[in-house]
Write a protein that binds this DNA or RNA. Structure first.
Lengths: 351, 351
DNA sequence: ACTTGTCTGTGTATCGTTACACATGCTGTG
DNA sequence: CACAGCATGTGTAACGATACACAGACAAGT
């Protein structure tokens, strides 16, 4: 795998000797090329190439300069889930974009759910952290705060030392749920996991406060607001909790509540992926959308638009970018401006 | 954003002083806790907490130990594309999994397409590289080789110093294309980009050698093999080249060749995303699958299974894991075993 | 009592680079 | 012609941690 594992990495001093210049000249050749005359620069580059010098050692550079040259991203409980979650991916693209613009790397801190995760955070060679939405009791959050590095949380939880980037989930949930729940008789909420245990199942009148993921909690509260505003009682609402944000998961869970006389006539899903999975299951079960049941999603992805899904539009990518900018200390203006969202009405709720 | 930007990071020496022990004792407390008695350990930990010491400086540690504690991933031309490509994401999940198992971070090297990308590679604080499929002429590849660090390429291009992890794309393409092209009269290939320029468009009899992405090239060759084996001439085959691997892109490009008397009766797509995008466009155009046109995808994603799409199954996640293992020098056995794939026949080609 | 071994704590040198202050030579200007 | 000002090259001292070798204390075995 290696190129030549036997030969040790040459150092700047060796290059300097080979090029008959001082170490500093070599250093400047890499760090501030303008500081060195063109002729000397060429000689140094030539010597470096001859010795196979790959450029300044990043560790040494980082130690001396005091900057790591990379932004850390903490992706919730298990990396596996994170990369399979399209929302997380969109968010990451936004973070990555800003990193690239600053010439920074993007280091994914490997989280597995083990207690050693906090060590990983402390050991990460980064200049700041972006924390992807996680549960209130996730020990990774205090670990991030303990590094003393600039950090921003997306989605939740709140932490004294870190700004949070998120939309007003409760309000948005209220809006989208109102659209479909006002006239519903057998409503179902297709929910994100409540906590890091990620138990799946269907329950009636679930107390939103049980959810330790802030996003899940706030959206449940919003739904409850809407249902009660329409004159309903919360225990009438079934909450189907998915273990992960994927269409497959939703489709499989849907079989548990889609059949029989109790089949819902309205489903509010917490993501477009979940909504689309449900719609797939509904079609298989012979139910028509919106004829038999109205459906709403969340995020306004391309697929949602293609499927005519009513949804809450929010730009996760922009939110990722914003998190990165905040960590990097950019954007002094409108730092406190709320993140935008809007309700997009489509056929899936057209009665 | 920061916790307290004013106060400088405490050093190990300060902690040692506060705990009234030597610096080495503090070092051991973090690096080899068993080497230190429980009492002393507690004293050190306490002092560290009191001073707000976040643990050993990663840069210094990396310099001294000679390991960076992170694996680098180079994600092709532009980060943006990479994170939006579901295949790349699946692959990443595999890499991440192995990293997590080794307690390593995963550093995404920010690529923008600018010449400075090669500097980014040289500057990355990593112990090895995994290169996601890119074009033969991508300067990033020699830059990776020049670091002298262990490196593995996924998909392509080939490079003397790096093993490559990929399936036999030509053979697989031959197999899937044979399934549908044997009886086709107006075949279309829905292709990945040919090169980093990512020009989109529809062309007849495109020479596979034009493609500098190895994967694209090999698959085109496989399709040609199949078509010619069925007695056809290559120029009869239209190749629709997408700029990116997304359903939306495919659907939009499909409008250019789906209408009129020339509408294809068979489409072989290079990914399930492209195939599904095309099917969406076909449905909108009033064409039935497989009645009016047969369609095949590639990758066997959940969505492909749900849509009844004939496809080539390959496990990108496992390939990501494998790349990481190779870089880390794991797995001495079956290192040269070819990566598996298989043809999955479903309704989209059932005539 | 003496050797042997284990456990725990301690200096010192060093990892490879860059910030900083300084030295030199050359150009242009009053 | 002297002197400022710029361009270019050079030592030295950190940056913060860890590998290594060694020292003392104590227990156990002979």
């Amino acid at each position: 795998m290696a190129q030549d594992p036997s030969r040790p990495r040459p150092t700047m001093a060796e290059v300097a000797r080979a090029a008959k210049v001082s170490v500093m000249t070599v250093s400047y050749t890499y760090a501030q090329p303008d500081r060195v005359s063109e002729r000397t620069r060429a000689r140094v580059r030539e010597a470096a190439a001859r010795l196979g010098y790959p450029g300044p050692h990043p560790g040494a550079r980082s130690l001396r300069r005091g900057r790591a040259g990379s932004l850390g991203v903490v992706l919730g409980e298990h990396l596996t889930y994170a990369f399979e979650d399209p929302q997380a991916t969109r968010f990451l693209a936004g973070v990555a974009e800003v990193c690239a613009g600053h010439g920074l790397g993007l280091t994914i801190v490997p989280i597995t759910g083990a207690p050693s995760d906090t060590d990983r955070v402390a050991e990460a060679a980064v200049d700041g952290f972006v924390v992807w939405t996680t549960s209130d009791d996730d020990p990774v959050v205090p670990a991030v705060a303990a590094t003393g590095l600039p950090a921003v949380v997306h989605g939740g939880p709140h932490h004294r030392d870190m700004p949070i980037v998120a939309i007003d989930d409760r309000k948005a949930a209220r809006a989208v749920a109102a659209e479909v729940f006002a006239s519903a008789r057998r409503p179902v909420v297709l929910s994100f996991p409540l906590d890091r245990a990620r138990a799946r199942g269907v329950r009636n009148g679930l107390d939103p406060a049980e959810a330790t993921f802030r996003v899940t909690r706030e959206r449940l509260r919003g739904v409850r607001d809407a249902w009660e505003a329409a004159g309903g009682r919360w225990p009438q609402v079934r909450v189907a909790v998915c273990a992960r944000n994927s269409a497959g998961e939703a489709a499989s869970l849907a079989t548990e509540f889609l059949a029989g006389p109790d089949a819902p006539d309205a489903v509010m899903a917490m993501s477009d992926e979940l909504a689309l999975g449900l719609m797939r299951a509904a079609t298989r079960a012979g139910l028509a959308v919106p004829g038999d049941l109205a459906v709403t999603g969340w995020d306004d992805t391309d697929a949602a638009a293609a499927a005519g899904l009513t949804t809450v539009a929010q730009n996760l990518r922009a939110q990722g970018a914003r998190c990165a900018q905040l960590v990097l200390g950019e954007e002094a203006t409108d730092e406190t401006a709320p993140i935008e969202w809007r309700l997009v009405l489509r056929d899936s709720t057209r009665r």
